[in-house]
Design a protein around this nucleic acid. Structure first.
Length: 352
DNA sequence: TCTGGGGTCCTAGGACCC
DNA sequence: TCTGGGGTCCTAGGACCC
């Protein structure tokens, strides 16, 4: 019998900002792109609960947040600082875990099956983790506990903010009953729409879906969804994680068809990508250029090269991909450069 | 109100090789 | 003249998550 926990920080970036600026605690604070007096492009990354009282939430266009509350405190993103806090949090969690899997900057699964023999011990154990993070770092979190990763995740959603929620295996189906299919982790807006057209709107309807039909419609993913709807998830908490691609992207202040402007941006992004590639001691084989046009359609163009970690190759190839593929009739909104298909330095053969 | 930036995984067709 | 099956790599697109 497995026991899995998901530990998730509450409004993480804004909580980090509150740590170093305690004076913003009881004021509405928004972390994200620069609102530029309401004309800024971009979205709210996260905001504190005071800001939520005004209807602001993460993912919302920053210009809209500005209209709702122009005198809120708007703070720029500082990923280096959040990474620092993240490391402290993960260090606080690890001693509690038999298996540990960080899934994002502010979230981690732990497998505690070998540490907890009884469901009645689960919540006190989670409480100790919660308090340890609060004590060491000063950030509040929510913890979901379940028989697998999926249920831990779903329980955690219900636990927010600053709560702990346990869902026993025998209660899983009850817990999911009546829930909208879109609330299931892994089912987004598009899939939810398709499911609803097939007559499956709630999780319990999906749990009893016709297997043949689901496989016809969605392939292997169809069976996976039925399992999820039944609270079943066999996936393991996996320890070692390796980055698979490194990219940077940039949205122009105004859509543009100026080649010079785009190519300057490619150089800048290429530089940042190489810095990160070097930090991770990687070489790459594949270069991908991303173009988003004014109408929001996105296209990827990639090319494989001889294994390299060279800035010149990255920039030159990216520019070629741009010139060869850009639709000259349309203006570009966003440009991105990504390196992938990594080979570790040590695995790389030197040619002399 | 007008939509960011960082990623992951899956699918599918075509090339190419045996 | 007709024509298999498997494996791997490459490219493009799509969905999803935080």
């Amino acid at each position: 019998m497995r026991m899995i926990m998901l530990i998730d920080m509450d409004y993480f970036y804004a909580a980090c900002e509150e740590l170093r600026h305690p004076e913003i605690r009881d004021k509405p604070a928004v972390v994200g792109m620069d609102p530029k007096g309401g004309t800024g492009r971009g979205v709210v990354m996260t905001c504190n609960y005071k800001a939520r009282e005004f209807g602001i939430h993460s993912g919302m266009p920053i210009s809209m947040a500005y209209k709702l509350k122009p005198d809120a405190i708007y703070l720029p993103l500082d990923y280096d600082y959040y990474d620092l806090i993240s490391k402290k949090i993960m260090d606080a969690i690890k001693p509690f875990a038999a298996k540990f899997e960080q899934v994002s900057v502010d979230e981690a699964y732990i497998d505690v099956s070998e540490r907890i023999m009884d469901y009645s011990d689960a919540e006190p154990y989670a409480r100790r983790i919660h308090d340890k993070i609060l004590e060491d770092v000063g950030i509040k979190c929510s913890i979901g506990i379940g028989p697998n990763k999926l249920m831990a995740k779903m329980a955690c959603e219900k636990a927010k903010p600053n709560g702990i929620r346990l869902v026993r295996e025998s209660d899983a189906k009850d817990f999911l009953k009546g829930m909208d299919v879109e609330k299931l982790h892994g089912i987004g807006g598009k899939t939810a729409e398709r499911l609803k057209r097939l007559g499956y709107s709630t999780v319990d309807q999906l749990a009893m879906a016709k297997r043949m039909q689901m496989v016809e419609q969605f392939g292997a993913f169809g069976m996976e969804m039925i399992n999820s709807a039944n609270g079943i998830d066999e996936s393991e908490v996996t320890e070692n994680y390796e980055v698979k691609s490194i990219g940077r992207e940039l949205t122009f202040e105004e859509n543009t068809d100026d080649w010079k402007k785009v190519e300057d941006a490619i150089e800048k992004l290429g530089n940042e990508v190489i810095k990160e590639v070097e930090k991770n001691q990687k070489s790459f084989k594949t270069i991908t250029l991303k173009l988003r046009y004014g109408d929001f359609t996105e296209h990827l163009h990639s090319r494989s090269v001889r294994t390299t970690s060279d800035l010149g190759t990255l920039v030159k190839t990216s520019k070629e991909l741009y010139r060869n593929n850009v639709d000259k009739a349309r203006k570009v909104r966003k440009i991105g450069v990504r390196a992938s298909n990594f080979v570790d330095y040590k695995g790389q053969r030197r040619i002399t």
